[in-house]
Design a binder for these strands. Structure first.
Lengths: 217, 217
DNA sequence: GATGCTATTGAGTGTGCGACCAATAAGCAA
DNA sequence: TTGCTTATTGGTCGCACACTCAATAGCATC
């Protein structure tokens, strides 16, 4: 009878085990923070011994970078799918802002702040953050380009506009976790406002279009 | 002969010693990060024993919060002096942006990111960050109000405009430490652009006015 | 110059961390 | 069923950390 502790070893293929470790690490990173990614913490999560984590990630820093990359990458796919068979760019962009502004995005905001701080000390993480920053910028720029081609958006340089939008989102994200009781909509909606201004959209276009999501989520 | 190590004790008044500790801690926080504020690190900096730091700050977390408050407070006074006997609001604001955009501001950006991340785990620091956020916002709003009274700026709500400017500055600060080689001026100058737009100023007003600083620094 | 207050030290405790490695056993193949 | 590969364990090491406290010594006061 296996009581509280697991007695029997479960032997998995290296690829499976490694993926399992990264997944668990990403979850911990998202909910508790990157500094909580310790050998012991992840081992406990998976009900294995710490030495096993060391076996797959001889240096814990590599696991930290991998976990961040996994979490940020997954979230980007959720926010702006790479393939967008249905829905107009305007609808996708509206959905993007709806997600990236609500409280459900708090964990992601915190993760970005966490990673941008921690990269100061961890070179491997620094590179990974750079990769994700590029990925987010290019994914958003792609969406903007699609909108420009369809005549929905108007901008000289979609890449620049994408960066501007992300800067505002990151700026708002910096205040995640602060008790901002009376934050006026002129501030809360800065990201949407910036997008509408830089893309030549009428005010309210991106908040109203969020009503019809591309996937019922 | 006092060789490399200090043999003789130096006995100071509690007030002096405490101030000295906070000053040293603020310097370390600014250059190395808040997690480097350890009893040993500060003691080494001051050539005293770690136990002495514990004596003045029984809980390290209080020293961390105090160090952040001191560093952020000093920097705010440098950026926007509370008393501004000389210079127009436009000149002061231009100087503010000149400082808050250059590389000299990198350490401050990093400190803010550091503190905003660490407040997740440290309640005392969380309160202190809140206090400083309010202080920065109000100081900037005061400057804007002065400009509105003199007819230099035009805005409905200086408090909201101040928040908007700070959000953009924090957003740009998030990318401090990333190797952004080719960042176009439309992004680099976002903070100034936002200010000029929200204050009804002609484009370039705030970058040109930085030429005549109120204090030769 | 002697005295008393207290700022400062030195030594020690317990915790959690990453890293290392020989021993073990799971599960596949023969 | 047997044997072999190797995924997994258990144990250990050294380090850095915050925190505690009795002992020490600087220095102001008399």
């Amino acid at each position: 009878m296996p009581s509280s502790v697991q007695r029997k070893r479960i032997r998995k293929s290296p690829a499976d085990r490694r993926a399992e470790i990264v997944e668990a690490a990403a979850a911990v990173a998202l909910t508790e923070g990157l500094e909580c990614l310790t050998l012991r913490r992840i081992a406990e999560q998976l009900a294995v011994r710490p030495g096993l984590i060391s076996h797959y990630f001889p240096a814990v820093e590599d696991l930290v970078a991998e976990a961040f990359g996994s979490a940020a990458g997954s979230e980007l796919d959720r926010l702006i799918p790479a393939e967008r068979p249905d829905g107009t760019p305007t609808e996708h962009l509206a959905r993007f802002f709806a997600h990236a502004t609500g409280e459900a995005y708090d964990n992601i905001s915190r993760l970005w702040i966490n990673a941008r701080h921690l990269r100061r000390y961890r070179p491997v993480l620094r590179d990974r953050v750079g990769v994700q920053e590029t990925a987010w910028r290019e994914r958003l720029a792609d969406l903007l380009r699609a909108g420009v081609e369809r005549g929905e958006f108007r901008t000289d340089d979609p890449d620049v506009t994408a960066m501007q939008i992300l800067v505002v989102i990151d700026g708002l994200g910096a205040y995640t976790g602060a008790d901002i009781g009376n934050c006026p909509p002129e501030v809360t909606l800065m990201a949407v406002t910036t997008a509408e201004r830089e893309l030549g959209l009428a005010s309210g276009t991106l908040t109203r279009a969020a009503g019809r999501p591309t996937t019922p989520n």
